[in-house]
Amino acid sequence: MEPSAPLAIRVPAPRDVGATSTIIEIEDFNFSYGAKQALFDVNLKLDARRVTAFIGPSGCGKTTLLRCLNRMNDLIDGTVINGGRIRIHGVDINGPEVDAIELRKRVGMVFQKSNPFPKSIYENVIYGLRIQGVGSKSRLDEIVEKSLRGAALWDEVKDRLHESGVGLSGGQQQRLCIARAIAVQPEVILMDEPCSALDPIATAKVEELIHDLKKDYTIIIVTHSMQQAARVSDKTAFFYLGRLVEYDDTQTIFMNPANPQTEAYVSGRFG
């Protein structure tokens, strides 16, 4: 894959995606950090049990939108939603009766920099359950195994569940964070550049994992790497300067984009 060659990205053939249903609807969404507006009139419908990739140059608002989906932006001072709404399963997540904490239990998140807690691997995985008050040892054991298997980490760590999660390699740490996220059984998993700090082999493992996870979860991934978007996602949304430029099947975005800006970006001419 020579970076200089335009359209060097090999996009897999269209997959058998089966019937789709919309889970997240974003309507005319506007968002600001204080006086600086970060998102302008974003309209987007995301499919359930698919992988959707957000791509675009730095500062284009893709991470901001991602963090809006589980209201992590609430924690930043001075953020304002100035127009539009986000619905998940038809429920406005910024509605007055919605509890951000309950929302985050259903919409999990994996961060750019893997952030395992300085606890044992076991404790890391069950952290979310502990918080919800699950105390049954057998149930916790079961979930730990399931989640670690789900995150393709079980075989590597099953003998050292009670060692510190910080001692794992970078790729393992990130998969531990994914295991931690799926342990609370969310419906949606948001991934904020999950592989940006990983080496190619670890990246491949995580990507493989994403592919497996989409059987059961809706996955939204922000990535800087167009190859990655092409490899893992079913649909891709391209953002530029806070606006959604183009949203379509991944193959279309990469092979036959409608917008010249998209074409310029995916062919590596800027960004």
């Binding site: 992590m72 924690l75 985050r104 239990k105 979310g128 918080i131 919800q132 931690r180």
Partner: peptide
């Protein structure tokens, strides 16, 4: 900061 974000993203108060 990741400790806080990671925990909050898991639905902790």
């Amino acid at each position: 900061k990741g400790f806080r974000e990671g925990s909050l993203a898991l639905g902790a108060t």
